[in-house]
């Protein structure tokens, strides 16, 4: 312990890194390579995107900051066009479904699973591995797997529903739902001004399967930090399992909960792989989320100069993402302090 303290004293100024002139210069020297890489490969493209959203251009007629003859400045018109586009708002609704359902699903389910595994006296590692394993494959591969799962002929889900006799269809006014056609027409809630299409839920389940391992890891780490004496004291006081979870574990897991929820929000907002592989945003535009719309505008709608619109969507997504990441960032800076 004494040795460690002495080593720290030799390498760090008493007031921390950058506390005096030499230390500050040294610190800047150390981070300068990273800073250069950050400016070149992150900051510059980001600024390029931001400014590019103010111009009309496409991949075939690119906007170039060094060539004024390529400038077709439109100001905020790309944002106006985006925000007045029915296609954009359709993508917003589908993305909102992801933003609401996915984080709740991941956070609640992975916390419950982690607590259950935590309480299992033996074989916990086996269960954890089972939940974490899907994380090891790419989201595109997960999409392919779930395409098979939902297959109307030989899909596991379809066959299970048939075998278990769970097939049914509901048609209650604005709500229609059926335990079939998972990717083409599982149902819809018609709100009049918009529709909540259940094909998005089919995709969210696939994303949840691929992502929930992250939640399990994070909550498991949080559970290991719960003081044993706290749990033992609760047991001695006669707390039942439900009370223990509610009054001991959940309060102790607030930190992991914030992290899992925030990362899930970020994942949900930028989700692309699973949607693209399984439905490509279809049928029609039923599952088109913002990231898919952005991709189509940039790389599919090649005949019209829409890259400016795509960058406008990217900027809007980023702003929303910052809002979603706000609790996490606050938490991180709090930890840093």
């Amino acid at each position: 312990m004494t040795d460690t303290t002495e080593r720290s004293d030799r390498t760090l100024p008493a007031e921390g890194v950058g506390g005096d002139g030499d230390g500050r210069r040294l610190a800047y020297l150390f981070i300068s390579p990273l800073l250069v890489a950050f400016v070149l490969f992150y900051l510059w493209p980001a600024l390029n995107t931001l400014v590019g959203s103010l111009f009309r251009w496409s991949l075939l007629s690119p906007w170039n900051i060094a060539r004024p003859d390529t400038w077709d400045f439109v100001g905020v018109q790309n944002y106006v066009d985006t925000l007045t586009s029915g296609r954009f708002w359709n993508a917003v609704v589908n993305t909102l479904i992801w933003l609401v359902v996915f984080p709740v699903m991941v956070t609640v389910m992975s916390m419950l699973v982690s607590i259950l595994i935590w309480q299992v006296p033996r074989g916990g590692a086996l269960f954890r591995t089972a939940f974490i394993l899907p994380m090891t494959i790419s989201l595109a591969a997960a999409g392919v797997i779930w395409t098979f799962m939902y297959d109307p002929d030989f899909g596991v889900l379809t066959r299970f529903v048939e075998w278990a006799g769970l097939g049914f269809a509901v048609d209650w006014g604005p709500l229609t739902f059926q335990t079939a056609d998972w990717l083409s027409n599982p149902g819809v809630i018609d709100l009049g001004f918009t529709q909540i299409r259940f094909v998005n839920l089919s995709l969210i389940v696939a994303g949840f399967w691929a992502f929930t391992g992250f939640g399990v890891i994070t909550f498991t780490a949080g559970l290991t930090a719960v003081p044993d004496e706290l749990v033992e004291a609760a047991k001695v006081d006669g707390a039942r399992t439900g009370q223990m979870i509610r009054h001991i574990l959940i309060p102790q897991l607030r930190g992991p909960m914030t992290i899992v929820a925030t990362i899930s929000v970020i994942f949900a907002l930028r989700t692309f792989d699973v949607v693209w592989v399984i439905t490509q945003g279809g049928p029609a535009q039923d599952s088109e989320v913002l990231a898919v719309l952005l991709w189509k505008q940039a790389f599919v709608f090649l005949d019209s100069p829409q890259a400016g619109l795509a960058t406008a969507v990217a900027i809007i997504m980023s702003v929303v993402l910052i809002g979603g990441a706000w609790p996490y960032l606050r938490g991180m800076t709090r930890v840093a302090r």
Partner: peptide, 12 residues
């Protein structure tokens, strides 16, 4: 914001 935009941006 920078990281997200860098990921989304095509650049000139």
């Amino acid at each position: 914001l920078t990281l997200v935009l860098a990921a989304c941006g095509g650049g000139g």
